[in-house]
Protein backbone atom coordinates (compact mmCIF):
# COMPACT_ATOMS: atom_id res chain seq x y z
CA UNK A 1 0.00 0.00 0.00
CA UNK A 2 1.20 3.50 -0.84
CA UNK A 3 0.28 5.12 2.44
CA UNK A 4 -0.94 8.69 2.18
CA UNK A 5 0.97 11.27 4.08
CA UNK A 6 -1.36 14.22 4.05
CA UNK A 7 -0.38 17.36 5.84
CA UNK A 8 -1.84 20.82 5.76
CA UNK A 9 0.59 22.26 3.20
CA UNK A 10 -0.57 22.55 -0.38
CA UNK A 11 1.78 22.51 -3.35
CA UNK A 12 1.50 23.65 -6.96
CA UNK A 13 2.63 20.61 -8.97
CA UNK A 14 4.01 22.85 -11.71
CA UNK A 15 6.95 23.56 -9.41
CA UNK A 16 7.75 19.86 -9.13
CA UNK A 17 7.42 19.57 -12.91
CA UNK A 18 9.79 22.47 -13.56
CA UNK A 19 12.38 21.43 -10.98
CA UNK A 20 12.41 17.84 -12.25
CA UNK A 21 12.67 18.91 -15.88
CA UNK A 22 15.61 21.20 -15.07
CA UNK A 23 17.39 18.41 -13.20
CA UNK A 24 16.84 15.96 -16.06
CA UNK A 25 17.89 18.49 -18.69
CA UNK A 26 21.17 19.12 -16.89
CA UNK A 27 22.07 15.47 -17.37
CA UNK A 28 20.43 14.83 -20.73
CA UNK A 29 21.38 17.27 -23.47
CA UNK A 30 18.66 16.11 -25.83
CA UNK A 31 15.84 17.42 -23.63
CA UNK A 32 14.29 20.62 -24.96
CA UNK A 33 11.22 22.58 -23.90
CA UNK A 34 8.67 23.99 -26.33
CA UNK A 35 6.01 26.50 -25.34
CA UNK A 36 3.43 28.92 -26.68
CA UNK A 37 4.36 32.19 -24.98
CA UNK A 38 3.80 30.28 -21.74
CA UNK A 39 7.22 30.53 -20.11
CA UNK A 40 5.62 31.92 -16.94
CA UNK A 41 2.50 29.79 -16.74
CA UNK A 42 4.45 26.65 -17.63
CA UNK A 43 7.08 27.58 -15.00
CA UNK A 44 9.84 27.42 -17.60
CA UNK A 45 11.67 30.52 -16.35
CA UNK A 46 14.31 28.42 -14.61
CA UNK A 47 14.74 26.18 -17.65
CA UNK A 48 15.14 29.25 -19.86
CA UNK A 49 17.77 30.72 -17.56
CA UNK A 50 19.76 27.49 -17.39
CA UNK A 51 19.35 26.29 -20.99
CA UNK A 52 18.45 29.33 -23.08
CA UNK A 53 19.18 27.64 -26.41
CA UNK A 54 16.98 24.70 -25.56
CA UNK A 55 13.75 26.60 -25.00
CA UNK A 56 11.75 26.89 -28.22
CA UNK A 57 9.01 29.49 -27.81
CA UNK A 58 6.82 29.49 -30.91
CA UNK A 59 4.56 32.26 -29.69
CA UNK A 60 0.80 31.95 -29.53
CA UNK A 61 0.51 29.19 -32.11
CA UNK A 62 -0.43 25.81 -30.68
CA UNK A 63 -0.80 23.92 -33.95
CA UNK A 64 2.72 24.89 -34.89
CA UNK A 65 3.91 24.18 -31.35
CA UNK A 66 2.84 20.54 -31.52
CA UNK A 67 4.14 20.09 -35.07
CA UNK A 68 7.47 21.64 -34.07
CA UNK A 69 7.56 19.19 -31.16
CA UNK A 70 7.17 16.29 -33.58
CA UNK A 71 9.93 17.72 -35.76
CA UNK A 72 12.29 18.16 -32.83
CA UNK A 73 11.73 14.51 -31.95
CA UNK A 74 12.51 13.56 -35.57
CA UNK A 75 15.75 15.51 -35.15
CA UNK A 76 16.72 13.43 -32.12
CA UNK A 77 15.56 15.78 -29.35
CA UNK A 78 13.26 14.87 -26.46
CA UNK A 79 10.78 17.74 -26.49
CA UNK A 80 8.55 18.63 -23.57
CA UNK A 81 5.76 20.61 -25.24
CA UNK A 82 4.11 22.79 -22.61
CA UNK A 83 0.97 24.86 -22.79
CA UNK A 84 -2.32 25.48 -21.06
CA UNK A 85 -4.11 22.18 -21.46
CA UNK A 86 -7.24 23.79 -22.93
CA UNK A 87 -5.23 25.25 -25.83
CA UNK A 88 -2.70 22.46 -26.20
CA UNK A 89 -5.31 19.75 -26.54
CA UNK A 90 -8.20 21.72 -27.96
CA UNK A 91 -6.46 23.88 -30.52
CA UNK A 92 -3.92 21.31 -31.62
CA UNK A 93 -5.88 18.07 -31.35
CA UNK A 94 -5.39 17.11 -34.99
CA UNK A 95 -1.64 17.72 -34.63
CA UNK A 96 -1.66 15.55 -31.50
CA UNK A 97 -3.44 12.84 -33.47
CA UNK A 98 -1.46 12.90 -36.74
CA UNK A 99 1.96 14.26 -35.78
CA UNK A 100 2.33 12.74 -32.30
CA UNK A 101 0.04 9.74 -31.74
CA UNK A 102 -0.24 8.29 -35.25
CA UNK A 103 3.37 9.11 -36.07
CA UNK A 104 4.39 7.75 -32.64
CA UNK A 105 6.71 10.72 -32.14
CA UNK A 106 8.75 10.84 -28.95
CA UNK A 107 7.08 14.00 -27.68
CA UNK A 108 5.99 14.72 -24.12
CA UNK A 109 2.83 16.81 -24.11
CA UNK A 110 2.48 18.74 -20.86
CA UNK A 111 -0.99 20.15 -20.29
CA UNK A 112 -0.65 22.91 -17.74
CA UNK A 113 -3.48 24.27 -15.60
CA UNK A 114 -5.85 21.57 -16.69
CA UNK A 115 -9.36 20.93 -15.43
CA UNK A 116 -10.91 24.08 -14.02
CA UNK A 117 -7.61 25.47 -12.70
CA UNK A 118 -8.28 28.75 -14.46
CA UNK A 119 -11.49 28.99 -12.45
CA UNK A 120 -12.97 32.44 -12.89
CA UNK A 121 -11.49 32.83 -16.38
CA UNK A 122 -14.35 30.62 -17.42
CA UNK A 123 -15.14 27.64 -19.62
CA UNK A 124 -13.01 28.78 -22.59
CA UNK A 125 -10.01 28.29 -20.32
CA UNK A 126 -11.28 25.16 -18.56
CA UNK A 127 -9.86 21.92 -19.87
CA UNK A 128 -12.50 19.43 -18.85
CA UNK A 129 -12.51 17.62 -22.19
CA UNK A 130 -8.84 16.67 -22.48
CA UNK A 131 -9.06 13.13 -21.08
CA UNK A 132 -11.82 12.35 -23.56
CA UNK A 133 -9.94 13.87 -26.49
CA UNK A 134 -6.62 12.21 -25.76
CA UNK A 135 -7.49 8.82 -24.36
CA UNK A 136 -8.97 7.64 -27.65
CA UNK A 137 -5.62 8.11 -29.36
CA UNK A 138 -3.39 5.04 -29.76
CA UNK A 139 0.25 5.20 -28.61
CA UNK A 140 -0.49 8.04 -26.19
CA UNK A 141 -0.40 7.33 -22.44
CA UNK A 142 -2.58 9.82 -20.54
CA UNK A 143 -1.46 10.64 -17.03
CA UNK A 144 -2.77 13.00 -14.32
CA UNK A 145 -0.53 12.97 -11.23
CA UNK A 146 -2.09 13.62 -7.83
CA UNK A 147 0.71 15.43 -5.99
CA UNK A 148 4.18 16.87 -6.39
CA UNK A 149 5.91 13.55 -5.74
CA UNK A 150 3.91 11.77 -8.41
CA UNK A 151 4.38 14.71 -10.77
CA UNK A 152 8.15 14.53 -10.41
CA UNK A 153 8.07 10.75 -10.81
CA UNK A 154 5.88 11.00 -13.90
CA UNK A 155 8.20 13.57 -15.49
CA UNK A 156 11.19 11.31 -14.86
CA UNK A 157 9.26 8.39 -16.34
CA UNK A 158 8.23 10.44 -19.39
CA UNK A 159 11.81 11.46 -20.13
CA UNK A 160 12.93 7.83 -20.10
CA UNK A 161 9.91 6.45 -22.00
CA UNK A 162 10.57 5.98 -25.72
CA UNK A 163 7.30 7.36 -27.06
CA UNK A 164 4.73 10.08 -26.71
CA UNK A 165 2.64 10.78 -23.64
CA UNK A 166 0.28 13.41 -22.27
CA UNK A 167 0.87 14.63 -18.72
CA UNK A 168 -2.08 16.55 -17.36
CA UNK A 169 -1.00 18.95 -14.64
CA UNK A 170 -2.85 21.50 -12.56
CA UNK A 171 -1.89 24.67 -10.77
CA UNK A 172 -4.28 24.14 -7.89
CA UNK A 173 -2.47 23.31 -4.65
CA UNK A 174 -2.63 19.71 -3.44
CA UNK A 175 -1.18 18.05 -0.33
CA UNK A 176 1.52 15.42 -0.38
CA UNK A 177 -0.05 11.99 -0.78
CA UNK A 178 2.64 9.66 -2.06
CA UNK A 179 6.11 9.07 -0.63
CA UNK A 180 8.85 11.47 -1.69
CA UNK A 181 10.72 8.65 -3.45
CA UNK A 182 7.63 7.44 -5.30
CA UNK A 183 8.29 5.64 -8.58
CA UNK A 184 5.73 6.11 -11.33
CA UNK A 185 4.56 2.95 -13.06
CA UNK A 186 2.49 3.43 -16.22
CA UNK A 187 -0.95 1.88 -15.93
CA UNK A 188 -0.67 1.02 -12.25
CA UNK A 189 -3.06 2.50 -9.71
CA UNK A 190 -1.83 3.28 -6.20
CA UNK A 191 -3.77 1.88 -3.29
CA UNK A 192 -3.92 4.79 -0.85
CA UNK A 193 -6.34 3.18 1.56
CA UNK A 194 -7.75 -0.33 1.64
CA UNK A 195 -11.41 -1.06 2.24
CA UNK A 196 -14.17 -3.50 1.43
CA UNK A 197 -17.42 -1.47 1.31
CA UNK A 198 -16.84 0.81 -1.65
CA UNK A 199 -13.93 1.99 -3.85
CA UNK A 200 -13.18 5.64 -4.52
CA UNK A 201 -11.12 6.21 -7.67
CA UNK A 202 -9.64 9.54 -8.70
CA UNK A 203 -6.56 11.27 -10.02
CA UNK A 204 -5.08 14.75 -10.20
CA UNK A 205 -6.61 17.27 -7.86
CA UNK A 206 -9.40 14.90 -6.83
CA UNK A 207 -7.31 12.20 -5.20
CA UNK A 208 -6.82 14.05 -1.93
CA UNK A 209 -10.53 14.82 -1.81
CA UNK A 210 -11.20 11.09 -2.10
CA UNK A 211 -8.83 10.40 0.79
CA UNK A 212 -10.71 12.93 2.91
CA UNK A 213 -14.04 11.43 1.87
CA UNK A 214 -12.78 8.01 2.95
CA UNK A 215 -11.89 9.46 6.35
CA UNK A 216 -15.44 10.83 6.68
CA UNK A 217 -16.85 7.44 5.70
CA UNK A 218 -14.60 5.67 8.19
CA UNK A 219 -16.12 7.71 11.00
CA UNK A 220 -19.48 6.29 9.95
CA UNK A 221 -18.16 2.74 9.94
CA UNK A 222 -17.79 2.49 6.18
CA UNK A 223 -14.46 1.16 4.93
CA UNK A 224 -13.67 2.76 1.59
CA UNK A 225 -10.83 1.70 -0.65
CA UNK A 226 -9.07 4.62 -2.30
CA UNK A 227 -7.24 4.20 -5.59
CA UNK A 228 -5.14 6.94 -7.13
CA UNK A 229 -5.43 6.26 -10.84
CA UNK A 230 -3.06 8.70 -12.50
CA UNK A 231 -2.92 6.70 -15.70
CA UNK A 232 -6.18 7.05 -17.60
CA UNK A 233 -4.73 5.17 -20.57
CA UNK A 234 -3.66 2.41 -20.34
CA UNK A 235 -6.08 2.04 -17.45
CA UNK A 236 -5.31 -0.37 -14.60
CA UNK A 237 -7.95 -2.96 -15.44
CA UNK A 238 -6.71 -5.39 -12.79
CA UNK A 239 -7.14 -2.88 -9.97
CA UNK A 240 -10.59 -1.86 -11.23
CA UNK A 241 -11.84 -5.44 -11.59
CA UNK A 242 -10.51 -6.29 -8.11
CA UNK A 243 -12.20 -3.20 -6.69
CA UNK A 244 -15.50 -4.15 -8.30
CA UNK A 245 -15.35 -7.74 -7.12
CA UNK A 246 -14.05 -7.04 -3.63
CA UNK A 247 -15.96 -3.87 -2.72
CA UNK A 248 -19.05 -4.08 -4.96
CA UNK A 249 -19.40 -0.35 -5.65
CA UNK A 250 -17.22 2.30 -7.29
CA UNK A 251 -17.27 6.08 -7.11
CA UNK A 252 -15.08 8.05 -9.51
CA UNK A 253 -14.30 11.74 -9.30
CA UNK A 254 -12.41 13.92 -11.73
CA UNK A 255 -11.82 17.53 -12.67
CA UNK A 256 -13.27 16.73 -16.08
CA UNK A 257 -16.59 16.19 -17.76
CA UNK A 258 -18.24 12.96 -16.65
CA UNK A 259 -18.48 12.14 -20.35
CA UNK A 260 -15.42 10.40 -21.68
CA UNK A 261 -12.96 10.85 -18.84
CA UNK A 262 -11.68 8.74 -15.96
CA UNK A 263 -15.15 7.70 -14.82
CA UNK A 264 -16.03 6.55 -18.30
CA UNK A 265 -12.76 4.65 -18.61
CA UNK A 266 -13.42 2.89 -15.29
CA UNK A 267 -17.02 2.17 -16.29
CA UNK A 268 -15.89 0.54 -19.53
CA UNK A 269 -13.79 -1.93 -17.56
CA UNK A 270 -16.48 -2.52 -14.94
CA UNK A 271 -19.27 -3.16 -17.43
CA UNK A 272 -17.25 -5.63 -19.45
CA UNK A 273 -15.74 -7.52 -16.53
CA UNK A 274 -17.55 -7.16 -13.22
CA UNK A 275 -20.70 -5.03 -13.34
CA UNK A 276 -21.38 -3.25 -10.04
CA UNK A 277 -23.14 0.02 -9.20
CA UNK A 278 -21.07 3.09 -10.04
CA UNK A 279 -21.30 6.82 -9.52
CA UNK A 280 -19.30 9.16 -11.72
CA UNK A 281 -18.59 12.55 -10.19
CA UNK A 282 -17.21 15.35 -12.32
CA UNK A 283 -18.52 18.21 -14.40
CA UNK A 284 -22.00 17.03 -15.36
CA UNK A 285 -22.10 18.00 -19.00
CA UNK A 286 -22.33 21.75 -18.48
CA UNK A 287 -20.13 24.78 -18.80
CA UNK A 288 -19.22 25.69 -15.25
CA UNK A 289 -20.48 28.87 -13.62
CA UNK A 290 -18.06 31.55 -12.43
CA UNK A 291 -15.84 30.59 -9.54
CA UNK A 292 -12.44 29.34 -8.48
CA UNK A 293 -11.45 25.76 -9.15
CA UNK A 294 -11.89 24.81 -5.51
CA UNK A 295 -15.28 26.53 -5.40
CA UNK A 296 -16.41 24.77 -8.57
CA UNK A 297 -15.33 21.33 -7.36
CA UNK A 298 -17.36 21.87 -4.20
CA UNK A 299 -20.25 23.37 -6.16
CA UNK A 300 -20.36 20.40 -8.54
CA UNK A 301 -20.62 17.82 -5.78
CA UNK A 302 -16.98 17.00 -5.19
CA UNK A 303 -16.48 18.34 -1.67
CA UNK A 304 -15.22 15.43 0.49
CA UNK A 305 -18.52 15.41 2.39
CA UNK A 306 -20.51 15.27 -0.86
CA UNK A 307 -18.31 12.46 -2.18
CA UNK A 308 -18.95 10.56 1.08
CA UNK A 309 -22.69 11.08 0.67
CA UNK A 310 -22.54 9.84 -2.92
CA UNK A 311 -20.68 6.76 -1.72
CA UNK A 312 -23.27 6.05 0.98
CA UNK A 313 -26.10 6.37 -1.54
CA UNK A 314 -24.27 4.06 -3.90
CA UNK A 315 -23.65 1.42 -1.24
CA UNK A 316 -27.43 1.20 -0.73
CA UNK A 317 -27.73 0.10 -4.36
CA UNK A 318 -25.39 -2.86 -3.94
Amino acid sequence: MDAPNMNANLYDCRDAFAATLETLAAGEQTIVAVCNDSVGSSKLGGFKAKFPGRLVNVGIAEQNMVGVGAGLANGGRIPFVCGASCFLTGRALEQIKADISYSNANVKLIGISSGMAYGELGPTHHSIEDFAWTRVLPNLPVIAPCDRSETAAAVRWAASYAGPCFLRLSRVGVPDLLPEDHTFELGRANLLRDGTDVTLIANGTLTHRMVKAAEILAKQGVNARVLNMATVRPIDEKAIIAAAMETGAIVTAEEHSIYGGLGSAVAEVVVENAPVPMKRLGVPGIYAPTGSAEFLLDELGMAPSAIAEAALALIKRK
Binding site: V32, V66, V68, A73, N74
Partner: peptide, 10 residues
Protein backbone atom coordinates in the same frame (compact mmCIF):
# COMPACT_ATOMS: atom_id res chain seq x y z
CA UNK B 1 5.59 22.54 -42.52
CA UNK B 2 5.36 22.85 -38.70
CA UNK B 3 7.06 19.47 -38.37
CA UNK B 4 9.73 20.58 -40.84
CA UNK B 5 10.29 23.72 -38.76
CA UNK B 6 10.84 21.46 -35.74
CA UNK B 7 13.33 19.28 -37.64
CA UNK B 8 15.22 22.32 -38.89
CA UNK B 9 15.20 23.80 -35.39
CA UNK B 10 16.70 20.57 -34.02
Amino acid sequence: LPVAVGIATA
